[in-house]
């Protein structure tokens, strides 16, 4: 596993170096600015490298996003093409989810004023003295946004989990990935004293 990983990393880093010559001082996958100290490894990484699952130790990479350069190679199976194909499929699914959410928001946002413009009588309706339009705008719409946001969260995480399951079946890793997404529960850097992260 480790061998394979290292091979992939160096290959991908080389590819990056070719494409992005000005980013040369940046030794790993991170964008130029992800390394505020500018000297070698991200100091944040030194602190958190062994605590944050998404940032596993990897000597040849900047820790802020260590193996991202090998993102085209999920689980290292089937070579580059298959990995990129998987990524493309995931992007399609996620884009569809994002567009659905975006369309919902846009329909509500454009629909309501149009409704009021076309049928002004609706704007004068009152429920118990409170203008209905005000009640809907101030109280009624916000829960819709909260629901849309949570729904999208579920859909997006579901798509990612499905892909994780699929790849872990293809290549059973030594450490099983947590099924609840990648939330790095409990183990944190110095600030994150608050309990299990991300489990709401």
């Amino acid at each position: 596993m480790a061998d394979r990983r290292r091979v992939v990393v160096s290959g991908a880093t080389a590819a990056r170096a070719r494409a992005l010559p000005q980013a040369a001082p940046d030794p790993g996958g991170g964008p130029p600015g992800a390394e505020p100290s500018g000297a070698g490894h991200d100091p944040a990484g030194r602190e958190t490298a062994d605590t944050d699952p998404p940032d596993p130790p990897c000597p040849s990479c900047s820790v802020s996003f260590p193996l991202a350069a090998c993102a085209g190679e999920p689980a290292g199976r089937g070579g580059d093409g298959a990995g990129l194909a998987q990524a493309r499929a995931l992007i399609r699914v996620q884009l569809r989810a994002a567009l659905t959410t975006g369309a919902t928001v846009m329909i509500v946002v454009t629909g309501l004023p149009l409704l009021l413009a076309l049928a002004p009588a609706l704007g004068r309706l009152r429920a118990d003295g409170v203008p209905l339009a005000w009640a809907v705008l101030a109280l009624g719409i916000q829960p819709v946004w909260v629901a849309a946001s949570l729904l999208h969260l579920r859909r997006a995480e579901g798509a990612e989990r499905a892909l994780t399951r699929q790849t872990s079946r293809a290549a059973p890793p030594e450490h099983t990935a947590p099924t609840g997404g990648t939330a790095p529960a409990g183990r944190r850097g110095p600030v994150g004293r608050a309990g299990p992260a991300g489990r709401r």
């Binding site: 993102a71 990129l84 994780t164």
Partner: peptide, 18 residues
């Protein structure tokens, strides 16, 4: 590297990190 960049943006960390 656009293709790879996009893959990195969208693949979850537990896949890219394995």
């Amino acid at each position: 590297r656009a293709e790879r960049a996009l893959a990195r943006l969208h693949l979850p960390e537990d896949i890219t990190a394995r």
